[in-house]
């Protein structure tokens, strides 16, 4: 199966080790990745989707045309990119006038969009296309003995009819099963489905409250679980959940919050035997406690 890799901006710019992990694991699991040359911003919800429909959809259309030209679907890791592209495509598919307008805007650039390429999240591909059982069968180094908790990307859950692939957006199972496939024990806790709070303008507009909001989640993790690590599947979750821990530690004046955060693809790469230096080297919260036990 061939998929067109949509990287977004944060992953290649700030966390290329995640990109490395995806590029390493996908072929092992039978997915051939092709690059999206000349792709542009997804666009981020705070950008064109916040100014006008035309620029949003034109930008989505630009990107979708790349996958369409390659004749395959997009695979996306970043939650926002996934959601924005998917909503953009949905708009065009449901509104013929919008689709026409986008093609009108694209025409001088030599591009067209029909909607034939779908937008898929990397966790959907892993969960639905490959499956936890296949993944478990490929594991070379197990996470056995480690406890983890999972962070579902909101953007892959809601609204379920547009972005969802879980049987239930309100009681998702995918991430849990994927992490369990690597041998780890996944602990449950009260705020499992609480948003990390990292996306959008919340952190920017009221950082105090946003940190406080995130604190409730981390306190619940510490109080209610034996988590050795947090598995996420979105670049914003990854970066935010690390940064927040450091901020919180500064506030409380001790190293209370120090749970390593991994993108699931990084954990997968590690379990498939790839070099941690390549696939999990960039972090703001030390991962040694986990890496030493794999």
């Amino acid at each position: 199966m061939e998929l067109c890799l949509f990287l977004g901006c944060n992953t290649p710019a700030i966390r290329p080790d995640v990109e490395r992990a995806i590029r390493a694991t996908m072929p092992v699991l039978g997915i051939d990745l092709v690059d999206s040359d000349n792709y542009v911003c997804c666009p981020a919800f705070g950008a064109f989707p916040s100014t006008d429909i035309d620029s949003w959809l034109a930008t989505s259309g630009w990107n979708l045309s790349i996958a369409e030209e390659k004749g395959c679907d997009f695979v996306v890791q970043c939650g926002s990119c996934y959601s924005s592209l998917r909503m953009g495509r949905e708009h065009m598919m449901h509104h013929a006038d919008k689709m026409a307008r986008v093609n009108e805007l694209l025409e001088p650039t030599g591009r067209t969009v029909t909607g034939k390429s779908k937008v898929r999240h990397v966790s959907e591909v892993l969960y639905k296309e490959i499956g936890p059982e296949t993944i478990a069968g490929q594991v070379k180094k197990s996470l056995k003995g480690l406890h983890g908790i999972v962070q579902y990307p909101c953007h892959t859950l809601f609204p379920s009819e547009v972005v969802g692939f879980e049987e239930s957006a309100r009681a998702p199972k995918g991430m849990r099963q994927l992490v369990e496939a690597l041998g780890a024990t996944v602990d449950s806790y009260s705020r499992e489905l609480q948003c990390c709070g990292g996306a959008g303008g919340f952190m920017k507009s009221t950082p105090e409250q946003a940190i406080e909001f995130a604190k409730t989640k981390f306190d619940a993790i510490l109080d209610e679980t034996k988590a050795d690590f947090i598995a996420v599947s979105c670049i914003t979750c990854l970066m935010h959940m690390e940064n927040v821990q450091n901020t919180l530690n500064k506030r409380v004046g001790e190293e209370r919050y120090k749970i390593p955060v991994f993108d699931y693809n990084q954990l997968l790469a590690l379990c498939l035997g790839f070099d941690p230096k390549q696939v999990a080297s960039i972090c703001n919260v030390s991962r040694d406690s986990v890496l030493s036990r794999i």
Binding site: C154, H155, F158, S160, V163, G200, G201, F202, S205, T206
Partner: peptide, 15 residues
């Protein structure tokens, strides 16, 4: 009103 810009785009309200 500045608050629309504080939205994290999680879309849970939509769901």
């Amino acid at each position: 009103d500045d608050t629309p810009w504080a939205c994290v785009s999680c879309s849970k309200c939509e769901e």
